[in-house]
Write a protein that binds this DNA or RNA. Structure first.
Lengths: 229, 229
DNA sequence: TCCATAGCAAGAGCGGCGCTCTCTTTTGTG
DNA sequence: CACAAAAGAGAGCGCCGCTCTTGCTATGGA
């Protein structure tokens, strides 16, 4: 696809990539709010108006970075999971959780861009959905495997939540009990709460030795979903 | 203090309050990133440079809004708790959780300002610490009461976390078992994970009937801390 | 009571931002 | 080779945060 194209097309993809790389550099260094099209253009030796040939607005550039961030995070989680693919569900679960945390600590501004407060006036386009789902799918897969092997004891589910849990099950994991799906979605959100609090400074002077704290919390999240091994 | 002052001092506090009010209006309407000193001044019929007599920078104005947001949230949580002060610990816990969620849904931009990604380059001054602690103290108090009445069964604690848990206990709640304090801090972060995911759109097309979902999750958080009634 | 002073509003201005428009140059194709 | 499409360059518009200077006025001490 990308090869065997004219020189013009090749140049276009190269310049687009260079813009994204420089933008990612500035994002990592300064954060999304300080990311400026003019600065990116300046650094690349082009004039700012020329950059609009490649990204029609700052938001479009941000969207590209968001997709890349989701993909990078998803890849990190999948790679970590792959390394322990033969282990028990509990270890695979905690490994993925720790990989997500590790990626977040290594890429704080990218994490903030993706899981922090959304930029006001900005609504993520549909394109971001598939890469955003990768970590969630990974966790679902781990629980599904465990469930097939009988290593999941479904938690309780109040009647008020039954209908919604059935709906989530149909959407996300038809082969899992609704109790487990509901607990899984909650654990998923809670995982990002733990990471966000650490990353955004809420644990400052509260939690000091954060690695074991997080590890323990991740294990308890797994227990909450029903994982027993 | 604030009365019996000269006309100049009275005017100063009044104008300061008017600036904060207008800034809060714009924050609620547009979000922190779109909050502009010039627009606030314009709306108040003054020139932008005059505003710097009251707030030396945009960050200082934001800090004032952050403190107000923490106080508003803390007040909402405390008021909700007060209304069920005679109920059992579990109901008091869930009531506070739901009050926090309700406040967040009602004031999304303020919530994002406080618990979302921090503005890059901005570090919250020490002044924000006491108002920020109000909700946490409330939750600690609920668990403390329950513990005194024997309604808390301490969760497990791995050896790797013992030392850190003891430290947190000494800092936060010397009258609670370290296992409970560690679980409480985790639950506190997880609570904000649930709220943040709902507020920032991660639950879009995933969780639809969110109130019972959140209520159930809050109850399970309480169980995780060890609350039994 | 008078007056120096401290506080304040206003205006101009600096550099930076996102974005648009126009004009010129380059380049691949019929 | 001619020509249309794509790309770069530059000027400019209206924002922004922030600073500096200039007058004015209320206030508190001599």
């Amino acid at each position: 696809m990308s090869t065997a194209q004219g020189a013009r097309a090749r140049a276009r993809t190269e310049i687009t990539a260079a813009i994204k790389d420089e933008a990612r550099r500035q994002l990592a260094a300064e954060g999304a709010a300080r990311l400026s099209l003019r600065a990116v253009a300046r650094e690349l030796g082009m004039v700012s108006s020329a950059l609009y040939r490649y990204f029609p607005s700052r938001d479009d550039l941000l969207t590209a970075l968001i997709i890349d961030a989701y993909d990078s995070l998803g890849h990190a989680a999948e790679a970590a999971h792959h390394a322990v693919a033969d282990a028990g569900p509990l270890e695979r679960w905690t490994t993925v959780c720790e990989a997500v945390r590790g990626w977040a600590l290594a890429h704080p501004h990218e994490y903030a861009l993706v899981y922090g407060s959304p930029v006001p006036g900005y609504t993520a386009p549909q394109t971001t959905v598939p890469p955003a789902a990768r970590v969630g799918l990974l966790l679902i897969g781990i629980v599904r495997d465990a469930h097939e092997r009988g290593h999941v004891t479904a938690p309780a589910l109040p009647p008020a939540l039954r209908e919604e849990a059935e709906r989530m099950r149909a959407d996300l994991a038809p082969d899992l009990p609704p109790e487990v799906v509901a607990a899984l979605v909650a654990a998923w959100a809670q995982l990002y709460g733990l990471i966000g609090f650490e990353l955004f400074g809420q644990f400052h002077r509260v939690v000091e030795d954060r690695e074991p704290f997080f590890r323990h919390a991740a294990i308890r999240l797994a227990h909450g979903v029903g994982l027993t091994a």
